[in-house]
Design a protein around this nucleic acid. Sequence first.
DNA 1: GGCTTGCATATTGTATACAAAATGACTGTG
DNA 2: CACAGTCATTTTGTATACAATATGCAAGCC
Lengths: 217, 217
Amino acid sequence: MTRITRGGLAEEVVAHVRDQILRGELRPGQKIDQEQIAEDLDVSRSPIREGLVVLGKEGLLEITPRRGAFVAEISRADVVDHYELFGLIAGRVAAMAATTFTDEQRAELQHIHVLFTEASDDEAARLNHEFHQLINGAAPRRTRWLIRHLERSIPAGFFERTPGWKSEAVADHQTIVDAIVDQDADAARQAMELHLHEAGVAASNALEASGFWEESE
Amino acid sequence: MTRITRGGLAEEVVAHVRDQILRGELRPGQKIDQEQIAEDLDVSRSPIREGLVVLGKEGLLEITPRRGAFVAEISRADVVDHYELFGLIAGRVAAMAATTFTDEQRAELQHIHVLFTEASDDEAARLNHEFHQLINGAAPRRTRWLIRHLERSIPAGFFERTPGWKSEAVADHQTIVDAIVDQDADAARQAMELHLHEAGVAASNALEASGFWEESE
DNA sequence: GGCTTGCATATTGTATACAAAATGACTGTG
DNA sequence: CACAGTCATTTTGTATACAATATGCAAGCC
């Protein structure tokens, strides 16, 4: 049994189950069958259980002692709320960036943004990530930690798959860049909050399209 | 081997290790010895590993694949930042409460606050919890989830052990109650942010006192 | 002397085995 | 026919066993 386990099998389990949930193959409320996953991935239950704990902490699963793990009942309101919170944090960070960024950082931000506007669709995803990464660098450590946590709960690479995301993102990013370059903290906050709000709508639509909220049979 | 484990041994492990960290028995950067915990609690490594995953997701441990789990290097800045974030969220929720609460809820809030001011020290902790619980009821589901997450990362019952916490809390709570009763969303937000900021300072001091940041020998 | 190399040991990660509890069907009873 | 109680089956939770990797130390080399 050769395997390329780069970070442990639990990670593989996390990715597998998360995908199944986000694809709509596992429906909200449905029970997670550990034995089934063991069969699918050819793995024992030890790493599976550790993976399920992770997904539980991310809010994708509801784990009840002695009963098992169930797909969390996530509503449209939950997704919107999630991104609203994300926006609240990210907005605060953008405001920090507006007041603390050096000239070099401002230039770098503009540079990334220009590349982003001109990039092909698959490069755009990477540059989008770099863009937000740079801004988030202005945040203190614990804030960055929380942002990572929020990113993983409703994974990235989600927004990037909705039609027309790029042109929308370019416009939003432009506003954000302008505000940070102007050192206008409040405008940066507002622009970032709006951007994340729109990302939330997009994510919500993407989940809708994947049949996430379809009635069962 | 009789045990009263009502929620699984992993929970016991989480509580045990968390306590050890917060008491300063385990220092930041120090390695977690699974075998040692197994001996301490008379438990096998299976529930231990699951517990460590939980603490990793809470940010109290740093888990490196194939290397093990280490106590996270949490600085004063991290603690302050943590409560600042907490305040950002809780402030938003307080603002919601100010605009959405019914007359009954406002009355209930005032009632709890009066009891709180008159309570003995050990009852105060419970009423403090009820107070915040009631306000957080105004938040949407995902926000409540995030709040629970933040509460667990730097566990509650922490602030409540710093000297003079009650009188400080009474004053803060009074301001919050007034703002919510006045339906002044912005005042409620500010008051709540200030309250959490002070809680952060208190928590930071408590950690200091427990020797959390002491230099090792 | 300082640095690599190789091996013994310790520790993590995974698999399997076993114990305890929940689930669900079946039976008998009102 | 509804329904409570019992028992077989399934599934979770925990313990143990084994495999793979990391760690630490000692010997050899520059």
